[in-house]
Structure formats: C-alpha cells, structure tokens
Design a binder for these strands. Sequence first.
RNA 1: GCCGGCAUAGCUCAGUUGGCCAGAGCAGCUGAUUUGUAAUCAGCGGGUCGGGGGUUCGAAUCCCUCUGCCGGCUCCA
Length: 643
Amino acid sequence: MIQLTFPDGSIREYEAGISGLDVAKSISEGLARNVLSVSFNGQTQDTGLPIETNGTIVFNTWNEDEGKSTFWHSSAHLFAEAVEALYPGVKFGIGPAIDQGFYYDIDLGEESLSLDDLPAIEKKMLELARQKNEYVRKEVSKADAIKYFEEKGDEYKLELIDGLEDGQITFYTQGGFTDLCKGPHIPNTGSIKAVKLLKVAGAYWRGDEKRKMLTRVYGISFPKQKELTQHLALLEEAKKRDHRKLGAELELFMFSDRVGAGLPIWLPKGQAIRERLQKFLKDEQEKRGYKMVTTPHIGKKELYVTSGHYAKYGEDSFQPIKTPKDNEEFLLKPMNCPHHCEIFNNRPHSYKELPIRIAEFGTVYRYEQSGELHGLSRVRGFTQDDAHIFCTRDQLKEEFLNVLDLTKVVLDKMGFYEFTAQISLRDPATPEKYLGSTENWDAAEQAIIDATEEVGLKTVTEIGEAAFYGPKLDFMIKDAIGRSWQLGTIQVDYNLPERFELEYIGSDNQSHRPVMIHRAPFGSMERFMSILIEHTAGKFPLWLTPEQFVVIPVSEVFNDYGQSVVNELAKKDITGKVDFRNETIGKKIREAEMQKIPIMLIIGEKEQEEKAVSVRMQGKGDIGSMTLGEFVEFFEVEKEKGE
RNA sequence: GCCGGCAUAGCUCAGUUGGCCAGAGCAGCUGAUUUGUAAUCAGCGGGUCGGGGGUUCGAAUCCCUCUGCCGGCUCCA
C-alpha cells in the first residue's frame, strides 16, 4: 500500500500501481471525468500512469493552469493529426502549449498555408476529436525512435531525438498520428470540444535565423464552446483597445512615412497626457531627492566605447554621425547613463553627498530591426523616464527600497493594482555574456532579493535574463482585460562606475567606487502610453485626460454663456472648451462620446438663468443639472475617484 | 533582418476572370436650419489606385523592385 497526500492535506491509502485516474474515481466521478493530468510529487504526468510510491498528488482539471497546458498540448497533437490527414507528407517541428493555447511548426514542403485554409483544419480536428481517440503513451528505444522518423522522413524529429537519451524517449499516439513527445496528455481527444486556429506565421527551426523557416500555426481550444466564444470576445475587446487604433482616433500621436518608421510624433492631446505624466513623476521624484538634468542627444563615439555599449551594440546601432572637417564621430545617444556618469565625474564627491540621484526625461535612439517596430510599444526614438542613483554599497538596499516605493506609488496612481516583479539574474553557465566580477554580481543579486523580500513583493526569478552589466528587476503588470505587460525596470550596475572610474571619498579619506542603479518606473513614455491607452481603452482618468469637459450649447444664442463657463472652470484648473459648431446637439454629443471626453456640459436657457450646467458623463449619460459651484465640487470628487 | 500577408479619396471599404470617364458611406467645403442628451437637410469639391520599372493593343487588376503597414520569428543596452 502507498499513502497519497492531497492538496487539502488529507492522506489516503491505495494499492501501489494505481493510476491517477483511479485515485480520482475514488474521490468522485465528477473529478474523474474532468481530470486532465495529475501532478505527482510536483511532476505532471498522464492520468493513466501508475503511481508506485508515497507522495503528494494534485489533480489538474481545466481550472488549473497545468490542466489547461496539458489540454492545449494534446490539442497541438490533434492539430498535427488533422494537418497530416489533409496534407500528407508534411514534416513537423515542435508543438507546445503556450500561455493562451498552442502552436505547431510545420514544414509543408511545396505546399503553403493561409488563413483561408484554417477552417478546414479546424473542422478536421473536431471530427477527429469526436472519435474520442486515446492518447497512448509508449516508451521506445532511441534506435526504434530514429527508425520510425527515418521512415517518415522527418528530419526535425530526428534532430530532436538526437538530443535525447536512450531510455527516456516516449511516443504518443492518438488515432492515426504518432509523435515524439514526453507528455503528459489528456486521456482522450473527446474533451476537445471547441477549436480556433488563429494565426499563421513563419518561425525559424529552433529559433535560429540561419535555419529553415517553418510555418507556425497558432490555435486555442476549449472543453466548451461557450469558453471559446468568450475567448474570441476578449480578443475582439483587445482589438478595440489597440493603442494604434485609439491613438489615431483620439489624435494622440501619429507616424509619417516621410519622417521614418518607428519615429512617433506626438500630437497636442497626446503631448498633454505625456506632460501630465511627467509632471506627476517629477513631483514624486523631487520628494525623494532626485535632481533633474538635461543632456544632449548625441555624444562622441568614445563615450560609448568607454561605457562598453559600442562593443556590444555598435554594429547593430544607427551608425556614427561624422563632423565635416575633423571627422569626429558622434552617436545618437542610445542611453542616458554615460552622460549621467560624466555629471557625477564633474567634481569630486564626498560620501556625505551620497546617494546622488540624477533624473532626466531623456530621449534616446536605437536601431530596432524593421520587423520589430510596433506602434508606440517598439520604436526607434523614445523618451525614458530615466534616473541614475549613485550610492555606496551599504546604501544599495535602502536605495532599492526607495525605488520600489516610488514604483508602487506610480503603479497605484495609474490604476495598475495587480503586478508581479521579475528578478532577472545571470546565467552562471555563460559567464562570458556578462561584464564585471563575480563578487559584485553576487552582491547585486543579493541586494535585489533582500529588498524585494523586505517589502513582501510577489516575485518570479528568471535565470539568464539579466542585462550584461548587472541584474535587474522588472515590473509585470496586469491590465484591465487580464493581459500582462512589462513596465518599469530597476537595474543594479557595478560595471559603468568601473568603466567611467567613478569615485567618492569615504570617511576613511580613501577613494571608493560608487554603485549605480538605473531605474525607469514607466520604462519609456511611449511604451507606457501604449499600455495605458489599452488599459483604459482611451478613457483616461480625469487628472490625465487632455480635455476634461466640453460645453455644448443647445443653440448659438448660449455661446457666450458657454465661454463664461469655460473661463470660470479654468480658474479652478478644470480644462475644456465650447463646441461652437453649427451642429445639432445630438451630433455634438455623439462626437464627444466617441472622443471619450469624460464630461459634457449641456447648456440652454434654463442653465443660463440659473448659472448652472446640465452634466452628462461619457458612457453613463445624463446625470442632471447642477450649479457651477456644485459642479466644481462634483468634479473634484470624480477626479479623486479616478486616482 | 527573415517568412507570410496587405497598400484604392482625410477615414472605413466596393471595384467580378486585365477592357467604357475608378465608386459608396463618413469626414471636408458651401448654403439652408437654431437645435435639450449618441449622426438635420441639400449641393459641391476631392484619387499620380503607396513609389519606380516591366508584360500587354489595353493594368487598380499580372510580374519585378523599393517604401510603409499587419501577423509571427530572431533581437531588445
């Protein structure tokens, strides 16, 4: 007999060799029907596999991430089966589950796939799913595995097998399709009730741009049709919120082919928001001892040779600008930090001055590959809400906490209440990728870990994601429709102080090297705006929105009163304008609604007599009439709500 | 950069297998209308069919090339 511990802590006894499915059955029929895979001692496996020893067992159903992942992985196999049935002779790369669904890479040979071909594959998948074919696991020897795929002529699977150890190779077969796969899989195809293939795209074999481009098909599947419908509705919603669409509609920013790809141009309304964001951050930073600076947009090439960026990125950057006579070379600045290091170097520093916090909304230029450009979230010219903190090693943790606090204030203000922090550490296996001593790296990584623990931040740790000069902490936020984005970043750097020979005089009258922290709570104004637009769907909170209200007179007779309302409100720092156009009020309201102006003030004879306004809120409709004084109070309350 | 797709008026889109002066709605302009909570009516103007080259008696439509955009891949100091 073996003892199995369940998630609730209870323990039950079973015969050794019992399958996960039978354990589930012993609990309830419903569970047995819904279990997709089991996690035994933290290892996910098929429900049909025997359990031989004592341990903990977790049942993964659709409600668990593990369950979804198993379900989607099995769906990828079903997809491959359908593709093979419709396109005989194709070869397969890999087909994993991802966050939202699955994909499979296919070598179609002479064939090609377009979006129009997908419905036929979906249909085939559902047809095969209804056969309720079991996913049958089989352990095979390496020799047999090679033999199978040699006969099939699938060099991709052979290459995968090449990297596996004999004795650890398994095949899974469902219906007429067999795949190299370590599993686990759901019991049978019958639970896959709804399928949608979403995208066709190219993907390099093994992510290597020198190797063959395969056709990747992305899809998602569900145990219920209703869930697919909901998912598609969510995708629809995301499309509506697309910042590129809203940015154009609300006239926040634009691009111009003549100016160049990836070079955003901020229009007056976008700029108004941008300035309010910057003012907010500047005020918060001033409270925390930051000093603003301005540095030029270009710098001598040697500056970046010194910083190490030239060696690392020089080839892939905008190339140097040359002066006409002396042939000096200048680079568009890709970063602000070398300039800020020179500010630190401007004069000697005592330990008593530290930490020194230098902030700049610094516009930088980076050559992003043409295929990378995407709205405001990936551009070639952008403004970082940058700052560099120069401190002693002993101050590192406290400064880190200070930055964490600032970041939290910023996220709260913006309405991002759900976030995690990702700690990116170096990969000890590839030390050649990193600059600086092991000792310094250890200390920096420890400072980040300690600080996040001290404030009880929810964190995930990623090995190998560190920057080349130091470990970092990135904030991952969840937006209003549940998507994750990476926002601000905090990075510890021992490297630049070394390269720029930064020094301060300690209490011992000796020279010491300061530590540097790079940080940007927004990340960049451009990227942050893109996320904010999609998070709010263009309905910015009152304190941020470029036009807080519009006055709509019912006829031009009341234009003068309308202007006096605007003037009165301007005194209270409430900004808006009168819509003087000769249009019906229905039309003016419609346009204000579509422009997402939060407040419409309709005025006519009654309002003029009573020094009042009739208030309509965007998306909510008419909320009644109030005097101007009452409106100012109402506005302040609404503004607080939005914060 | 790579693979695939797309590019018609300011915007959203029609334009059948190459064939008369390339269309619609919205926006714009002019005029009428003076409006009470999501589109008032009428008239008018507007397009080198993304740029360049080619095939053809004839190209928005077919081919090449450049630019830009979209979906991915790779990359992201």
